[in-house]
């Protein structure tokens, strides 16, 4: 029997933990209310930051802004240890202690999870080691307890990611018309709102734990209208992440003029609502996949104005 644990450690990647990482991790962990939990979150965050830096070094795109991280609703119970590799899926980062022999994994099923990445953090907190990996499939079918010695190596992880990449590239090979149109316009990223990052033309009007609402004034045919979007994230019954958006259009100081239209894309069609005599506002609810592009168009007579968004 070959010396598996030694191979694992041979292929493990040491990585520096910068002062900046420690600062960020402390700031993030300080938002939790229980000291023991703060400590755990601190180390989870170091692990995530190291993993993020390493994958970016290898040329992967990463995303640290999953809702579990920034949506305060989730944060009250979340482990805050997920790293997303857009287009490929997410990795859950687990901190392992020196001398730890095994890990216990939860058996929930998240459709976009690539697997679990195991990170050891030196007591000096100045360096970490990416130790090993378990693909999500393995974790589900096997026992929920896995020996560290049985982890797959970081080399295996890189191979796994390459495979994921190949299959996802095949899917997105066709660019659609909407994407081309988008590349020329100014786009508002709604996810930023959930992270409390707002562009200057959108004004925050309400914020609670799950929903962020912003409004913007739009001039059309000499009149001023107000467009408001309320944005929140949710998970569908089959574990897909969705963004719920409610679009509300109203006149700044008056009711909507008769014949005014608000349109949004609807699959390959366009959905339009028209103001009749007594309309104070037009309200359209939308359910979108994360990263989905859409627009909202206001039309009054010959005048048209469009706002572009990415969920």
């Amino acid at each position: 029997m070959t010396d598996k644990p030694n191979v694992l450690w041979e292929l493990a990647i040491p990585f520096p933990i910068t002062a900046s990482f420690r600062h960020q991790a402390r700031a993030y962990a300080s938002q939790y209310f229980v000291p023991e939990v703060q400590t755990r979150i601190y180390f989870n965050t170091l692990a995530v930051l190291v993993a993020d830096a390493y994958f970016r070094l290898l040329g992967f795109k990463t995303n640290l802004t999953k809702p579990e991280r920034w949506n305060a609703l989730h944060r009250l119970w979340s482990e805050a240890n997920e790293l997303e590799l857009p287009g490929l899926g997410s990795l859950e980062c687990w901190v392992i202690a020196p001398g730890q022999q095994s890990v216990t994994l939860p058996t929930e099923h998240w459709s976009d999870r690539i697997g679990y990445l195991f990170v050891a953090i030196a007591s000096s907190e100045t360096s970490a080691t990416l130790v090993g990996f378990l693909p999500a499939i393995d974790a589900e079918t096997a026992e929920t307890e896995a020996a560290i010695a049985d982890l797959q190596s970081i080399d295996d992880l890189i191979d796994e990611l390459a495979q994921q990449e190949a299959s996802s590239l095949a899917k997105t090979a066709q660019t659609n018309d909407l994407t081309r149109e988008f590349s020329e316009k100014q786009i508002t990223y709604l996810r930023n709102w959930l992270n409390n990052v707002y562009a200057t033309d959108w004004q925050l009007s309400m914020r609670d734990l799950s929903t962020s609402t912003c409004k913007k004034k739009i001039q059309l045919a000499g009149q001023v209208f107000e467009m408001q979007l309320s944005v929140s994230q949710t998970v569908s019954p089959n574990q897909d992440e969705l963004m719920l958006v409610r679009v509300v259009v109203q006149g700044e100081n008056a009711s909507l003029p008769k014949g005014m239209q608000v349109s949004v894309p609807d699959e390959s069609n366009i959905y339009t609502e028209t103001a009749n005599e007594a309309a104070d506002l037009i309200s359209i609810p939308l359910e979108l996949a994360l990263g989905e592009e859409f627009w909202v168009e206001l039309r009054l007579g010959e005048s048209v104005s469009r706002e572009y968004f990415i969920a």
Binding site: L73, L76, S205, M206, R207, D208, L209, S210, T211, T213, S230, R246, V248, L281, S283, P285
Partner: peptide, 15 residues
Amino acid sequence: LTQNQRLFGEESYDR
């Protein structure tokens, strides 16, 4: 948490 959270701002529009 979903049912019990409200922080600040205007009442949301009637859904």
